[in-house]
């Protein structure tokens, strides 16, 4: 059918043979005349398999074949070839049936003795996957931002409800936002994988722990928490801290906070111990912060919490099951 003899990889000429792209030479009748080593690797057909077969049957997904044949006939009849001499991204077919995204450029040449089409194809699966991953991440980021706005709206709404005046609202709201911001910072530093409870606690206690003598001490084993638990625990600890500053151990000269945690078969228990207080009734609070803590423990951590009042202070303990592994 063709006067052109087969163009094995060796006879394609050194330039085409050593090309880093798959090179496919197609006769004007649509059959394959040449096929380099990269083409063999990219599409899974040896030159022997491919030689003389219709190119469209071999490497063009079925849904594009009719268009390809029509385009070829149109070019041969009119000389118009809109896909020639440019780079296009398209899907090609591998021998095993999977499709791969390729960047394709087609030129026409007569250098092999008769007019043929010379196709250069580059497998761009990796670039494609990176782009898909990026789209996914942007979508996830968008979702996360909107969810975070929902949380901020919730905090604003509930803080406003519990504030007697704007003067009360402002510090309470901005304090909660800052706690949320810090938790996000810790999670970002941990690339939104697990983050250490110790880091969270160090950040929360800050100068309270480094003062001499310290106003707060922390003690517990190294444990990593999943992102949503990091957010929940940080909001809980923030409320405990705020209460301690306003009414508790950090509102009196000799008060002290001892924060400790332990892991056993039931899960993680975090204990917040305030000492050095004298006025018990001042401590018996059922404010917004306390409600927020109870709700966060029950709703987000699916855990339990309890408070014990003592003449000189209080112990607040909450327990939940952190996910393991990761």
């Amino acid at each position: 059918m063709s006067e052109l003899h087969d163009l094995r990889s060796e006879s394609l000429g050194s330039v085409l043979r050593t090309a880093l792209d798959a090179v496919v030479v197609m006769r004007t009748d649509g059959t394959i005349a040449g096929w380099n080593d990269v083409a063999e690797r990219t599409f899974g057909w040896s030159f022997r398999d491919a030689s003389g077969r219709r190119m469209s049957d071999l490497i063009i997904p079925e849904r594009f074949r009719a268009d390809h044949e029509k385009g070829l006939a149109h070019f041969l009849a009119t000389g118009e070839g809109p896909v020639l001499n440019q780079h296009i991204e398209i899907h090609a077919l591998h021998r095993d049936g999977r499709e791969l995204p390729v960047e394709l450029s087609i030129t026409q040449t007569s250098q092999f003795g008769e007019p043929v089409f010379l196709g250069f194809l580059r497998d761009i699966s990796e670039r494609h996957e990176a782009a898909l991953r990026q789209d996914l991440m942007i979508g996830e980021l968008n979702h996360r931002v909107k969810n975070l706005l929902g949380v901020v709206a919730g905090i604003a709404h509930m803080t406003a409800k519990s504030s007697a005046s704007l003067a009360d609202f402002e510090p309470a709201f901005s304090g909660r936002l800052m706690a949320l911001g810090k938790a996000h910072e810790i999670l970002t530093a941990a690339t939104w994988e697990r983050a250490s409870l110790q880091t969270l606690v160090d950040d929360l206690l800050g100068t309270m722990a480094t003062a001499d003598p310290p106003r707060a001490t922390a003690n517990g084993p190294n444990i990593l928490l999943e992102p949503k638990h990091v957010l929940s625990v940080s909001m809980i600890l923030h409320e405990l801290m705020t209460n301690a500053l306003k009414y508790g151990a950090l509102s009196v000269p000799n008060g002290h906070i001892s924060l400790s945690w332990a892991v056993d078969h039931k899960g993680l228990s975090i204990e917040w111990l305030e000492t050095g207080l004298v006025l018990l009734e001042q401590l018996q609070r059922k404010g917004f912060g306390t409600k927020m803590i109870e709700r966060t423990v029950a709703h987000e951590l699916k855990g339990t919490s309890e408070t014990h009042w003592r003449p000189d202070g209080l112990t607040f303990r909450f327990s939940f099951t952190p996910t393991t592994g990761g």
């Binding site: 509930m158 409800k161 519990s162 504030s163 007697a164 009734e281 018996q284 609070r285 059922k286 404010g287 917004f288 912060g289 306390t290 409600k291 109870e294 919490s305 309890e306 408070t307 009042w309």
Partner: peptide, 18 residues
């Protein structure tokens, strides 16, 4: 929990305003 519920509601922050 129970103790918290019955603790003095000295503040305005009930979150369940009438």
């Amino acid at each position: 929990m129970d103790q918290l519920e019955t603790a003095a509601r000295y503040d305005f922050a009930s979150g369940h305003n009438p």
